[in-house]
C-alpha cells in the first residue's frame, strides 16, 4: 500500500507534463533545423508560434513544482525529481528559444542565394537533435548511462561549432558582399544556437545523473 497517494500522483503528473513539454521542444528544435535546411518559411513560422505555448507550459510546471515543495515537503528521490524538473524546464524553455532564433534566421535568409550549400550545419543540427532526443529519453527511463553518453557527445558539437566558426570567419574576411557577410553572420549564429541547444541537452543529461544517483556532476 502506498501512502500520500495524492501527492505522489501529482508528482507523477508533473513528471509526465515535463516529458510532454520535452517532446514538444524536441519537435520544435527538429522542425526549426529542418526549416532552415529547406528554407521552409511556414515551418519556421510554426516554430515561432509554438513558443508561447511552451512559455506557458514552463510557467505552469514551475508553479506546480513550487506548490508541491511548499505544501508537501518532498524528500529524497521526490526532492531530487522536483529539483530536476525545475532545472530541466528552464533548459527546455531555452532550447525552444534557440529554436525560435534559428527559425527567425530561416525567415531572414529565405529567398537568398546561399553562400555555400548547408553541409556542416545540418550535420551539427542532426547531432544536437539526437542529443535532445536522447537526453529526454534518459529522463523518461531514468537511464544514467544514456544521460552520461549524451553529455559525452557535447564535445563533438563544440568541435564542429569551433570549426564552423573558423570557416565562416574566413569567409567573411574574404568577402565584401554585405548580403553574403550578413548571411555568414546568420549562419554563425545558427551554429551558436545549435551549440547552445546541445549544451542544454547536456544540462538535462547532468540533471538525469543527479536524479538517479544524487550525484551532482559537470559533464561535457
Amino acid at each position: 500500500m502506498t501512502s500520500r497517494q495524492q501527492y505522489h500522483d501529482e508528482l507523477e503528473a508533473l513528471h509526465s507534463r515535463l516529458l510532454e513539454m520535452g517532446s514538444l521542444v524536441e519537435k520544435v528544435v527538429a522542425r526549426s533545423v529542418e526549416s532552415l535546411a529547406q528554407l521552409d518559411v511556414d515551418a519556421a513560422q510554426n516554430v515561432i508560434d509554438t513558443d508561447d505555448t511552451l512559455d506557458a507550459m514552463e510557467m505552469e510546471i514551475e508553479q506546480r513544482c513550487i506548490r508541491l515543495i511548499a505544501l508537501q515537503q518532498p524528500m529524497a528521490a521526490d526532492l531530487r525529481l522536483l529539483a530536476t524538473i525545475l532545472k530541466v524546464v528552464t533548459d527546455l524553455e531555452r532550447m525552444a528559444d534557440n529554436a525560435v532564433n534559428i527559425s527567425e534566421i530561416t525567415l531572414r535568409i529565405a529567398g537568398q542565394q546561399l553562400v555555400k550549400p548547408l553541409v556542416d550545419i545540418p550535420k551539427m543540427a542532426a547531432l544536437a537533435v539526437q542529443m535532445v532526443h536522447d537526453a529526454l529519453a534518459a529522463l523518461v527511463q531514468r537511464d544514467e548511462a544514456l544521460a552520461r553518453a549524451v553529455c559525452e557527445r557535447d564535445d563533438a558539437v563544440d568541435d564542429m561549432y569551433a570549426a564552423l566558426f573558423e570557416e565562416l570567419v574566413d569567409m567573411m574576411k574574404s568577402d565584401t558582399d554585405p548580403i553574403r557577410v550578413s548571411q555568414c553572420a546568420n549562419l554563425m549564429f545558427t551554429a551558436r544556437f545549435l551549440e547552445r541547444i546541445a549544451d542544454h541537452a547536456t544540462n538535462i543529461g547532468e540533471r538525469v545523473v543527479y536524479l538517479v544517483s544524487g550525484e551532482r556532476v559537470k559533464l561535457g
Binding site: S3, H8, A77
Partner: peptide, 20 residues
C-alpha cells in the same frame, strides 16, 4: 545525505512517504 539521497530503498520509501 539521508534526506536528499538515501542509500537504502527502504529509507527512500519511508522518507518520501511511500512506506506503509
Amino acid at each position: 545525505k539521508m534526506f536528499e539521497n538515501p542509500g537504502d530503498q527502504r529509507t527512500e520509501d519511508y522518507i518520501t512517504g511511500r512506506f506503509g
